[in-house]
Protein backbone atom coordinates (compact mmCIF):
# COMPACT_ATOMS: atom_id res chain seq x y z
CA UNK A 1 0.00 0.00 0.00
CA UNK A 2 1.44 3.35 -0.95
CA UNK A 3 1.93 6.04 1.64
CA UNK A 4 0.25 9.37 0.97
CA UNK A 5 1.13 11.19 4.15
CA UNK A 6 3.91 10.72 6.60
CA UNK A 7 5.02 12.69 9.64
CA UNK A 8 8.56 12.09 10.79
CA UNK A 9 9.59 13.13 14.30
CA UNK A 10 7.29 16.07 13.92
CA UNK A 11 7.20 18.74 16.60
CA UNK A 12 4.48 21.30 16.10
CA UNK A 13 3.09 24.19 18.07
CA UNK A 14 3.00 27.96 18.03
CA UNK A 15 5.81 29.34 20.17
CA UNK A 16 6.28 26.34 22.40
CA UNK A 17 5.96 22.74 21.25
CA UNK A 18 2.42 21.46 21.65
CA UNK A 19 2.89 18.02 20.13
CA UNK A 20 6.17 16.15 20.03
CA UNK A 21 7.54 13.04 18.38
CA UNK A 22 4.62 12.73 16.02
CA UNK A 23 5.26 9.82 13.71
CA UNK A 24 2.41 8.63 11.59
CA UNK A 25 1.69 7.33 8.14
CA UNK A 26 -1.49 7.34 6.14
CA UNK A 27 -1.89 4.91 3.27
CA UNK A 28 -4.07 5.02 0.19
CA UNK A 29 -7.85 4.58 0.45
CA UNK A 30 -8.10 4.67 4.19
CA UNK A 31 -9.78 6.91 6.70
CA UNK A 32 -7.54 7.81 9.60
CA UNK A 33 -9.06 9.59 12.54
CA UNK A 34 -7.15 11.90 14.85
CA UNK A 35 -8.59 11.66 18.34
CA UNK A 36 -7.82 13.71 21.38
CA UNK A 37 -9.26 15.97 24.02
CA UNK A 38 -10.26 19.53 23.32
CA UNK A 39 -7.19 21.72 23.04
CA UNK A 40 -4.71 18.88 22.74
CA UNK A 41 -3.47 20.13 19.39
CA UNK A 42 -5.43 18.24 16.74
CA UNK A 43 -6.17 21.32 14.68
CA UNK A 44 -2.61 22.49 15.16
CA UNK A 45 -1.28 19.21 13.79
CA UNK A 46 -3.64 19.51 10.86
CA UNK A 47 -2.44 23.05 10.17
CA UNK A 48 1.11 21.78 10.09
CA UNK A 49 0.21 18.91 7.79
CA UNK A 50 -1.65 21.20 5.39
CA UNK A 51 1.23 23.62 5.02
CA UNK A 52 -0.18 26.46 7.13
CA UNK A 53 2.05 26.26 10.17
CA UNK A 54 5.72 25.35 9.74
CA UNK A 55 6.79 22.64 12.18
CA UNK A 56 9.22 23.45 14.96
CA UNK A 57 11.20 20.42 13.81
CA UNK A 58 10.71 17.21 11.89
CA UNK A 59 9.22 16.61 8.48
CA UNK A 60 5.84 16.34 6.80
CA UNK A 61 5.85 14.23 3.67
CA UNK A 62 2.88 14.56 1.38
CA UNK A 63 2.88 12.16 -1.56
CA UNK A 64 6.46 11.41 -0.58
CA UNK A 65 7.67 15.01 -0.85
CA UNK A 66 8.79 17.05 2.10
CA UNK A 67 6.19 19.79 2.25
CA UNK A 68 8.21 22.49 3.92
CA UNK A 69 11.34 21.93 1.85
CA UNK A 70 9.59 22.78 -1.40
CA UNK A 71 9.60 26.14 -3.13
CA UNK A 72 6.26 27.95 -2.66
CA UNK A 73 5.06 27.21 -6.20
CA UNK A 74 5.90 23.50 -5.92
CA UNK A 75 4.24 23.36 -2.54
CA UNK A 76 1.10 24.89 -4.03
CA UNK A 77 1.18 22.24 -6.76
CA UNK A 78 1.32 19.57 -4.11
CA UNK A 79 -1.44 21.14 -2.03
CA UNK A 80 -3.74 21.20 -5.04
CA UNK A 81 -3.79 17.43 -4.88
CA UNK A 82 -5.18 17.69 -1.35
CA UNK A 83 -8.32 19.26 0.03
CA UNK A 84 -8.98 20.75 3.44
CA UNK A 85 -12.25 21.37 5.25
CA UNK A 86 -11.68 23.60 8.26
CA UNK A 87 -13.13 23.45 11.73
CA UNK A 88 -14.68 26.83 11.12
CA UNK A 89 -16.15 26.27 7.68
CA UNK A 90 -13.98 29.06 6.17
CA UNK A 91 -16.36 29.60 3.27
CA UNK A 92 -15.79 32.91 1.52
CA UNK A 93 -18.45 35.15 2.98
CA UNK A 94 -18.66 37.39 -0.06
CA UNK A 95 -19.43 34.57 -2.50
CA UNK A 96 -22.43 32.33 -2.95
CA UNK A 97 -22.16 28.65 -2.08
CA UNK A 98 -21.85 27.75 -5.76
CA UNK A 99 -19.07 30.28 -6.32
CA UNK A 100 -17.28 29.04 -3.23
CA UNK A 101 -17.23 25.51 -4.49
CA UNK A 102 -16.40 26.54 -8.03
CA UNK A 103 -13.46 28.68 -6.93
CA UNK A 104 -10.74 26.00 -7.06
CA UNK A 105 -12.02 24.92 -10.47
CA UNK A 106 -12.08 28.48 -11.77
CA UNK A 107 -8.67 29.35 -10.43
CA UNK A 108 -6.77 26.17 -10.99
CA UNK A 109 -8.27 24.62 -14.11
CA UNK A 110 -9.22 25.79 -17.55
CA UNK A 111 -12.56 24.02 -17.63
CA UNK A 112 -15.42 25.78 -19.39
CA UNK A 113 -18.03 27.54 -17.31
CA UNK A 114 -20.78 25.06 -18.16
CA UNK A 115 -18.73 22.09 -16.96
CA UNK A 116 -17.78 23.87 -13.77
CA UNK A 117 -21.44 24.50 -13.10
CA UNK A 118 -22.31 20.86 -13.65
CA UNK A 119 -19.51 19.66 -11.39
CA UNK A 120 -20.62 22.02 -8.63
CA UNK A 121 -24.17 20.77 -9.00
CA UNK A 122 -23.05 17.16 -8.72
CA UNK A 123 -20.86 17.76 -5.72
CA UNK A 124 -23.56 19.70 -3.91
CA UNK A 125 -25.94 16.83 -4.56
CA UNK A 126 -23.43 14.42 -3.10
CA UNK A 127 -23.30 16.31 0.21
CA UNK A 128 -27.07 16.74 0.25
CA UNK A 129 -27.18 20.42 -0.64
CA UNK A 130 -28.73 20.17 -4.11
CA UNK A 131 -30.15 23.52 -5.21
CA UNK A 132 -28.25 25.64 -2.70
CA UNK A 133 -25.89 27.15 -5.30
CA UNK A 134 -27.07 30.73 -5.07
CA UNK A 135 -27.37 31.00 -1.30
CA UNK A 136 -24.82 32.98 0.65
CA UNK A 137 -22.94 31.09 3.37
CA UNK A 138 -24.67 33.21 6.02
CA UNK A 139 -27.99 31.87 4.78
CA UNK A 140 -27.03 28.29 5.63
CA UNK A 141 -27.25 26.44 8.92
CA UNK A 142 -24.10 25.32 10.69
CA UNK A 143 -24.39 21.78 9.40
CA UNK A 144 -25.11 22.91 5.86
CA UNK A 145 -22.04 25.13 5.95
CA UNK A 146 -19.90 22.20 7.04
CA UNK A 147 -21.21 20.16 4.16
CA UNK A 148 -20.62 23.00 1.70
CA UNK A 149 -17.05 23.23 3.00
CA UNK A 150 -16.67 19.51 2.44
CA UNK A 151 -17.92 19.90 -1.11
CA UNK A 152 -15.38 22.66 -1.74
CA UNK A 153 -12.56 20.61 -0.27
CA UNK A 154 -13.30 17.72 -2.60
CA UNK A 155 -14.25 19.57 -5.77
CA UNK A 156 -10.92 18.84 -7.49
CA UNK A 157 -11.27 15.16 -6.51
CA UNK A 158 -8.09 15.27 -4.47
CA UNK A 159 -6.40 12.05 -3.44
CA UNK A 160 -6.03 13.22 0.14
CA UNK A 161 -8.61 15.16 2.13
CA UNK A 162 -8.29 16.66 5.60
CA UNK A 163 -11.40 17.39 7.65
CA UNK A 164 -11.38 19.14 10.98
CA UNK A 165 -14.40 18.04 13.02
CA UNK A 166 -16.82 17.62 10.12
CA UNK A 167 -19.65 16.52 12.37
CA UNK A 168 -19.02 18.39 15.61
CA UNK A 169 -22.04 20.18 17.00
CA UNK A 170 -24.50 18.64 14.56
CA UNK A 171 -27.53 16.56 15.30
CA UNK A 172 -27.00 12.80 15.11
CA UNK A 173 -28.87 12.42 11.83
CA UNK A 174 -26.88 15.07 9.99
CA UNK A 175 -23.68 13.86 11.62
CA UNK A 176 -24.42 10.35 10.39
CA UNK A 177 -25.07 11.61 6.90
CA UNK A 178 -21.73 13.42 6.88
CA UNK A 179 -20.05 10.23 8.04
CA UNK A 180 -21.76 8.41 5.25
CA UNK A 181 -20.53 10.97 2.74
CA UNK A 182 -16.98 10.55 3.98
CA UNK A 183 -17.17 6.78 3.62
CA UNK A 184 -18.63 7.30 0.16
CA UNK A 185 -15.69 9.49 -0.76
CA UNK A 186 -13.37 6.69 0.22
CA UNK A 187 -15.29 3.87 -1.41
CA UNK A 188 -16.51 5.44 -4.63
CA UNK A 189 -13.95 8.16 -5.30
CA UNK A 190 -10.99 6.39 -3.69
CA UNK A 191 -10.15 9.41 -1.57
CA UNK A 192 -7.94 9.03 1.48
CA UNK A 193 -9.17 10.99 4.46
CA UNK A 194 -7.59 12.31 7.62
CA UNK A 195 -10.43 13.31 9.91
CA UNK A 196 -10.30 15.04 13.26
CA UNK A 197 -13.23 14.22 15.45
CA UNK A 198 -14.10 13.44 19.00
CA UNK A 199 -17.54 12.07 18.30
CA UNK A 200 -16.95 8.45 19.18
CA UNK A 201 -19.89 7.20 17.11
CA UNK A 202 -18.31 8.81 14.05
CA UNK A 203 -15.03 7.15 14.80
CA UNK A 204 -16.71 3.77 14.88
CA UNK A 205 -18.64 4.53 11.72
CA UNK A 206 -15.83 5.75 9.52
CA UNK A 207 -12.38 5.02 10.82
CA UNK A 208 -10.08 2.36 9.48
CA UNK A 209 -7.43 3.46 11.90
CA UNK A 210 -7.17 6.04 14.64
CA UNK A 211 -4.36 8.01 16.18
CA UNK A 212 -4.91 9.15 19.75
CA UNK A 213 -3.18 12.33 20.86
CA UNK A 214 -2.73 13.05 24.54
CA UNK A 215 -0.14 14.54 26.80
CA UNK A 216 1.55 16.33 23.95
CA UNK A 217 2.31 13.24 21.90
CA UNK A 218 0.80 10.33 20.04
CA UNK A 219 -0.19 7.99 22.82
CA UNK A 220 -1.79 5.24 20.78
CA UNK A 221 -2.45 4.31 17.19
CA UNK A 222 -4.06 1.33 15.57
CA UNK A 223 -7.24 -0.10 14.16
CA UNK A 224 -10.47 0.64 15.92
CA UNK A 225 -10.71 -2.93 17.21
CA UNK A 226 -7.26 -2.66 18.74
CA UNK A 227 -8.02 0.67 20.37
CA UNK A 228 -11.39 -0.49 21.69
CA UNK A 229 -9.58 -3.24 23.53
CA UNK A 230 -6.89 -0.95 24.87
CA UNK A 231 -6.67 -0.24 28.57
CA UNK A 232 -4.39 2.76 28.27
CA UNK A 233 -6.22 5.42 30.28
CA UNK A 234 -6.46 8.08 27.56
CA UNK A 235 -7.72 5.58 25.01
CA UNK A 236 -10.09 3.83 27.36
CA UNK A 237 -11.53 7.16 28.44
CA UNK A 238 -12.32 8.05 24.87
CA UNK A 239 -13.91 4.85 23.78
CA UNK A 240 -15.93 4.29 26.93
CA UNK A 241 -16.81 7.85 27.79
CA UNK A 242 -15.41 7.87 31.30
CA UNK A 243 -13.60 10.81 32.85
CA UNK A 244 -10.79 8.61 34.17
CA UNK A 245 -10.05 4.99 33.38
CA UNK A 246 -11.23 2.57 36.10
CA UNK A 247 -8.26 0.26 36.18
CA UNK A 248 -5.02 2.05 35.65
CA UNK A 249 -4.02 5.15 37.46
CA UNK A 250 -2.78 7.61 34.93
CA UNK A 251 0.08 9.78 36.04
CA UNK A 252 -1.01 13.25 36.99
CA UNK A 253 1.36 14.53 34.36
CA UNK A 254 -0.53 12.95 31.52
CA UNK A 255 -3.86 14.08 32.86
CA UNK A 256 -2.95 17.68 33.36
CA UNK A 257 -1.05 17.91 30.12
CA UNK A 258 -3.91 16.24 28.37
CA UNK A 259 -6.40 18.86 29.36
CA UNK A 260 -4.32 21.97 29.12
Amino acid sequence: MSTLLECRDLVCGYDKPLLQDVNLTVGAHEIVVLLGGSGCGKSTLLRTITGLLPPLSGQVLVFGESLYDLAPEERNQLLRRTGTAFQQDALFGSMSVGENIALPLRELTKLPQSMIKEMVRMKLGLVGLGGFESRLPTQLSGGQRKRAALARATILDPQLVFCDEPSAGLDPVVAASIDETLVQFRDTLGITLVVVTHVIESVRAIADRAVVLAGGRVCAAGTIAELEASTAPEVYGFFHRVPVAPHATPTTRTITRGIT
Binding site: N76, L79, G83, T84, F92, L103, E107, L108
Partner: peptide
Protein backbone atom coordinates in the same frame (compact mmCIF):
# COMPACT_ATOMS: atom_id res chain seq x y z
CA UNK B 1 -11.05 36.84 5.85
CA UNK B 2 -8.00 36.09 7.96
CA UNK B 3 -10.01 35.79 11.16
CA UNK B 4 -12.53 33.47 9.50
CA UNK B 5 -9.66 31.29 8.15
CA UNK B 6 -10.63 32.12 4.58
CA UNK B 7 -7.02 33.02 3.82
CA UNK B 8 -5.92 29.65 5.18
CA UNK B 9 -8.51 28.02 2.96
CA UNK B 10 -7.00 29.73 -0.08
CA UNK B 11 -3.53 28.67 0.95
CA UNK B 12 -4.51 25.02 1.31
CA UNK B 13 -6.12 25.15 -2.13
CA UNK B 14 -2.72 26.12 -3.44
CA UNK B 15 -3.96 29.57 -4.40
CA UNK B 16 -1.56 32.37 -3.51
Amino acid sequence: MKVRSEIDALATMGID
